[in-house]
Amino acid sequence: MEVLFQQLGLCDPAYARWFEYSYSRKHSLQQPFEPTYETFLRFFERRKYRLAREVFTFDAWTGQEERGRGGMMSFTCGSNEPFYSNLCVLHLPREEPAASRVLTVAGLTAVVRAMVRAWEPDGCAVIAEGDRDAKKVLEDGGPCLGWLMYVSAERGNVPTLPKPVRVEPMEGKGSLIILTPERFSLRNPAHVALAGRVRERLQDAGLLPAPKKEE
């Protein structure tokens, strides 16, 4: 967790300071914290941050006044139980100037790299806010396709994908798939069609779950 917050701080100034997330803005701003190893050990000892004996959950806020939860991160870790998924969700900024800095291929690649360095996850995806199906899959702990998608090498090899999709090595641990060089949009028919073709190839390679058959 210390590595994650440190790496995010290097990604963009929007992630340079953090507060414990609380029921009100005023209360949260009274709870700044330094994201260090010792700090998280202290948090872990608090009952309110533990779902079970060794299952830790935490919500953090950047203190920015944004619509929605653009400055929030939440995660659950340490779980071996099927009903608690080990998951980290970072809400990306909507408002300027942070949005223009972060919501780019370069900016989001840095964010995904921070996630990979910290957690060494099976997968990671950058999804649009309106993509409810992908959000549900992620919340259930499964892999899904997004504008950017990281796939651990342990899950298999990434097949050849149609242009303009790029596949890059990530930290020697897996591959990063980048669907489009510009910001991906669910309102762009070309983007949606491209995502459909990529999804089919990843399903054939066993990197995404196959569609459920109708009974």
Score class of each variant (00 low, 15 high):
Met1Thr: 12
Glu2Thr: 14
Val3His: 03
Val3Asp: 02
Gln6Gly: 06
Gln7Met: 07
Gln7Arg: 14
Leu10Ile: 09
Asp12Ser: 15
Pro13His: 12
Ala14Leu: 15
Ala16Pro: 00
Phe19Arg: 04
Glu20Asn: 06
Tyr21Gln: 05
His27Trp: 03
His27Phe: 10
Ser28Glu: 06
Gln30Thr: 01
Pro32Val: 11
Pro35Leu: 13
Phe40Tyr: 09
Phe40Gly: 03
Phe43Asp: 01
Phe43His: 06
Glu45Thr: 07
Arg46Leu: 15
Lys48Gln: 13
Lys48Ala: 14
Arg50Cys: 13
Ala52Leu: 13
Ala52Thr: 02
Ala52Pro: 00
Arg53Ala: 15
Arg53Tyr: 07
Val55Leu: 12
Thr57Met: 14
Thr57Ala: 14
Trp61Cys: 02
Trp61Lys: 02
Arg67Val: 15
Met72Thr: 09
Thr76Gln: 09
Cys77Lys: 03
Cys77Asn: 00
Cys77Asp: 01
Ser79Gln: 06
Asn80Tyr: 10
Glu81Tyr: 09
Tyr84Ile: 12
Ser85Lys: 15
Leu87Ser: 08
Leu90Met: 10
His91Asn: 15
Pro93His: 10
Arg94Leu: 15
Arg94Ile: 10
Glu95Asp: 15
Glu96Ala: 15
Glu96Met: 12
Glu96Ser: 15
Ser100Phe: 03
Arg101Thr: 08
Arg101Trp: 05
Arg101Lys: 12
Leu108Lys: 04
Thr109Ile: 07
Val111Ser: 05
Arg113Ile: 04
Val116Arg: 02
Val116Glu: 01
Glu120Arg: 15
Pro121Gln: 07
Gly123Lys: 04
Gly123Glu: 03
Gly123Val: 04
Gly123Trp: 07
Ala128Ser: 11
Glu129Thr: 08
Gly130Val: 10
Gly130Cys: 10
Gly130Ala: 14
Leu138Ile: 07
Asp140Leu: 10
Leu145His: 00
Gly146Ala: 05
Ala153Phe: 06
Gly156Trp: 06
Gly156Thr: 05
Leu161Glu: 02
Val165Gln: 07
Glu168Thr: 14
Pro169His: 12
Leu176Thr: 01
Leu176Gly: 04
Leu179Thr: 01
Leu179Pro: 03
Thr180Tyr: 06
Pro181Asn: 04
Leu186Arg: 01
Arg187Glu: 12
Pro189Trp: 06
Ala190Phe: 00
Ala193Glu: 08
Leu194Pro: 03
Leu194Tyr: 05
Arg197His: 13
Glu200Asp: 11
Arg201Tyr: 01
Leu202Trp: 01
Gln203Thr: 05
Asp204Met: 06
Asp204Lys: 11
Gly206His: 02
Ala210Val: 11
Ala210Phe: 04
Lys213His: 09
